[in-house]
């Protein structure tokens, strides 16, 4: 295996992007920022890969318009996934492993505010017996949360603890949408919205984009003094049928975590769009109590579709660059109620 590291990360998030669903307005500055961080130009990038969704954009082949942000003459080697950009990064990492390229720029983007996000996401469900009922994301998460509460796996207070810690930590994150010093009592004082969930238990609808640069070996050391080296990169998926798996545990996260290796992790950025899902993920990964969870505030404070997962990797890498972490874990989820999970572990070397 080649040693590959994250050497650049740039993000933008907002409640409502005043721009087109191609998100070109924010992708162009993100890519410029990545060049500035690494001192590279377009010609230093060997492979490009993006994550986005036409259902979110409301137009076909929306990722093709986004390619304008790259500038593609002479032509570039480019690919795309209709998934969170963390999976685009997985493809880019494989591409570097093949030896064909040494560097890659990965980006994700989405304008969730253009439609009704919780409704549009029903289109990822089984199209025969589930999607025709239009079960929205919040309702499915509510069913999952209640099942855990009634089984005694967690309670409202444990969920409120996650919310309070996330919003408090997000105060220092310029890109967080819902943030500020918050106590457990503050959370519990909020009205219940989708019983058993409060609005703060659910990630805010967010627009945004993000990009990451990967590089192998010496090329990584050229760009960053303390690169965030990838030590494990795994993803696992569970059945689409909502009655074919336990919703209160995440066996796919556990399997990805075991394969990636979680020993020695001091920081974890977990992609939990609902408060109780962080509890499921922590349990699945078997993270010790002293691991710092979501110092950025996590997805409960901003959850731009198709880049929020990549953001978890970027936030983890940023802490390694800064020397605040020696080994960090980043997790990404997609699909209904934690169907598909990815774990990436990163380490700094002195």
């Amino acid at each position: 295996m080649r040693d590959v590291a994250v050497v650049g990360f740039s993000q933008q998030q907002m409640k409502e992007l005043d721009g087109s669903p191609t998100c070109l307005e924010i992708l162009v500055p993100i890519i410029q920022d990545l060049y500035e961080q690494t001192g590279w130009t377009k010609s230093d990038i060997g492979f490009w890969c993006s994550g986005s969704s036409d259902y979110l954009a409301g137009r076909s082949f929306s990722f093709v318009s986004a390619v304008d942000a790259i500038g593609t003459l002479p032509p570039v080697m480019e690919s795309h996934v209709e998934m969170d950009a963390a999976w685009a990064m997985y493809e880019a990492w494989i591409k570097i492993q093949t030896g064909e390229v040494d560097t890659a720029l990965v980006y994700g983007f989405g304008k969730s505010s253009a439609g009704t996000l919780r409704r549009i996401l029903a289109l990822q469900l089984d199209p025969y017996t589930t999607q025709p009922l239009w079960p929205d994301t919040v309702s499915l998460a509510g069913i999952q949360a209640r099942e855990g509460i009634e089984k005694g796996l967690w309670d409202e207070k444990a969920m409120a603890e996650v919310v309070a810690r996330s919003m408090t930590d997000a105060a220092a994150n310029e890109w967080a949408i819902r943030k500020g010093a918050t106590s457990i009592d503050d959370v519990l004082a909020q009205p219940v919205y989708a019983d058993p969930l409060r609005r703060w238990d659910c990630a805010p609808v967010s627009d945004g984009a993000a990009g990451i640069i990967l590089a192998a070996g010496d090329k990584a050391r050229e760009a960053r003094q303390r690169p965030a080296w990838i030590t494990g990169f795994e993803h696992r998926i569970e059945p689409i049928a909502l009655n074919a798996r336990s919703l209160t545990e995440s066996v796919s996260t556990a399997a990805a975590g075991t394969a990636a290796g979680v020993d020695g992790v001091d920081t974890a950025e977990l992609h939990a769009p609902f408060s109780h899902q962080e509890l499921i993920l922590r349990n699945a990964l078997g993270l010790p109590g002293d691991v710092t969870i979501n110092p950025s505030g996590g997805a409960l404070t901003a959850n731009p579709m198709f880049s929020a997962g990549l953001n978890r990797i970027g936030e983890a890498a940023s802490r390694i660059w800064a020397g605040n972490s020696d080994k960090a874990l980043a997790h990404t989820t997609q699909g209904p109620v934690l169907q598909h999970n990815l774990v990436c572990t990163l380490e700094g070397r002195n």
Partner: peptide
């Protein structure tokens, strides 16, 4: 298990608040 749908969205089985 169930969840309350306080604000139903288009094409769901019921137009007034209900439970999934």
């Amino acid at each position: 298990s169930w969840s309350w749908v306080a604000e139903p969205v288009a094409q769901q089985p019921l137009e007034k608040p209900f439970a999934f």
